[in-house]
């Protein structure tokens, strides 16, 4: 069972965990993901890789509490264990020299940018990073990402920090003045869709990292199927990266809502029991 070497709460309901998993880390590359199962009753949760310390064999992931399984993860502390940590899964992000690369992260999608930026830098790219969140408190990793990027731009929806507005507004300005070879976007589906619409018009190659609902992560269940250029692909084995301009975002958004009712019920029951001091296993 993997032990939590370090837990840090980065913002309200956003926690960073480090695990010692040498075998997994040795093989992992930027853009891949892992599946985590906290306890016997928990869901298998796919998580982007947010950091890889190849020398020490340490994996970093960042968790946003959105439901019961992730809220339970949030209660774990340094020294606690999770039942299962499985991976690396999926295809790594295709690296290469594109000239200037813009890495865009929205919300929890900011977390996996670090290894991607590092990767693009190692291929000699100029990397401009754009990160955005609802407000200043939820904007994570600015300093860390700033140290590896050539330029970093922050946006908040409410204007409490950086530029007021969305990451797409900032991206639009960057595309006006820079000759951009590649846009890499990670975040909410609606954000990735708006970015895709923008870059499609301008003919800028764009890769998105998709996060459909998933069970096994090995291609076996097909729950993570996404429509790419009119054909079904499995995000777990064919992705999670896809050419943004070929993605059917409408279908992905629809499929992400499949368990809204169940997720709410399970989360509410959990919160209710937690509030009343009932130990939840």
């Amino acid at each position: 069972m993997p032990e939590i070497l370090e837990k840090r709460t980065l913002a309200s309901k956003i926690h960073q965990f480090k695990f010692l998993t040498p075998r997994l880390v040795k093989k992992a590359l930027p853009g891949q993901f892992v599946i985590l199962r906290a306890n016997e009753q928990a869901e298998r949760i796919p998580m982007s890789i947010a950091g890889l310390d190849k020398e020490k064999g340490i994996l970093t992931i960042v968790v946003l509490e959105v439901g019961k399984s992730t809220a339970q993860l949030g209660t774990l502390e340094t020294g606690d264990y999770v039942l299962d940590l499985f991976g690396p899964l999926g295809q790594p992000t295709e690296m290469g020299n594109f000239g200037t690369v813009v890495c865009v992260g929205g919300g929890i999608g900011i977390a996996p940018l670090y290894p991607l930026i590092e990767g693009f830098k190692s291929y000699g790219n100029k990397v401009i990073t754009i990160i955005g969140a609802r407000n200043k408190d939820l904007l994570i990793k600015e300093k860390e990402l700033g140290t590896v990027s050539d330029e970093i731009i922050c946006t908040t929806d409410d204007g409490s920090y950086g530029l007021k507005g969305f990451v797409t507004d900032a991206l639009s300005k960057v595309l006006e003045k820079e000759n951009v070879g590649l846009v890499m976007a990670v975040g909410p589906v609606v954000m990735m869709k708006v970015i895709s619409d923008l870059t499609k018009k301008q003919g800028v190659k764009t890769i998105v990292s998709l996060n459909p609902i998933m069970v096994d992560g090995t291609g076996m269940c097909g729950g993570c199927r996404v429509v790419i250029d009119g054909k079904n692909k499995f995000a777990c084995v064919d992705g999670p990266d896809f050419d943004a301009h070929q993605v059917d975002f409408e279908n992905l958004m629809m499929r992400q809502k499949a368990y809204l009712v169940e997720e709410r019920r399970s989360y509410e029951e959990y919160q209710c029991r937690a509030l009343n001091g009932v130990k939840v296993v």
Partner: peptide, 14 residues
């Protein structure tokens, strides 16, 4: 086939 409520048997059974 990509509507909500359509499963592969593998997913449903898993």
């Amino acid at each position: 086939e990509n509507l909500n409520g359509v499963y592969s048997a593998n997913e449903f059974l898993t």
